[in-house]
Amino acid sequence: MADVLTSKKKRVGLLGYAFKPMWISLRTLMRTSFAGGKPNTLLYPEEKIDLPDDFRGELGLVMDRCVGCESCARVCPNKCLDMMEDDIGDGTTKWMPALDLAQCMFCGLCVEACPSTALHMTNRYETATQDRNEKIFRPHEWALKPEDAPDQKPFPYPELYEINCTGCGACDRACPHEVIDMVSIPGTAKKRPNGTFGPEKKIPIFDYELCVSCALCVDACPFDALDMLPRSTTASDPAVQPQLQNVKVEQTKQEVSA
């Protein structure tokens, strides 16, 4: 039969009654006991396993970077993040997420959703306590020290796939900060059969100075015309923005044709 693996059965033989398995365990004993060998186990509280940099441990918050966009609270499957006003240390208050770590399942979706690199999964994994209430943190209680904070990544900003946009204005209505302005494009009005012209097509224009990268507009867009993309340059720089948009549109066209 092709594609079928049926390896030959190993013969047991007279040695198989006890000696073959005993030989393997004896070899392990030799390896672990003599010639500088040591057993495979880690002595846990003294020795610890090497963790990779992106290990998903206990959550930590960098308070300075938090923009209060609520992306994390929206994406959390267990609703363990709860937004509240809290002191950031110098007397001023800020809208930041509080954490119920006992509900957290360490999925890391909030870290991915955070636009400002304010959330970070640390290498701490020994989170056991006697009381579940000890694992409820106000924002400043689960804040990271500045030296533990991860490298800041560029903010993602909403980008428009013009080809998908219908100008419905859902993003404008969803935006909490008046970042989005719907502007008409001249000359796009369709001519009706009776000779009158319909409304001109509108597209959103973003004022990136005001944007907090909360992605509410992206969620609101019914036609997937928006996407969050990181921008290294100042997004409102007029010299950069049109080029980027052109690239996007070309890509979308290629996808459609493919």
Binding site: L26, T28, L29, P39, N40
Partner: peptide
């Protein structure tokens, strides 16, 4: 102890 070494672990320590 011996069982630990046979099994590639340490036994009580």
């Amino acid at each position: 102890k011996e069982l630990g070494r046979f099994m590639d672990r340490r036994g009580p320590f």
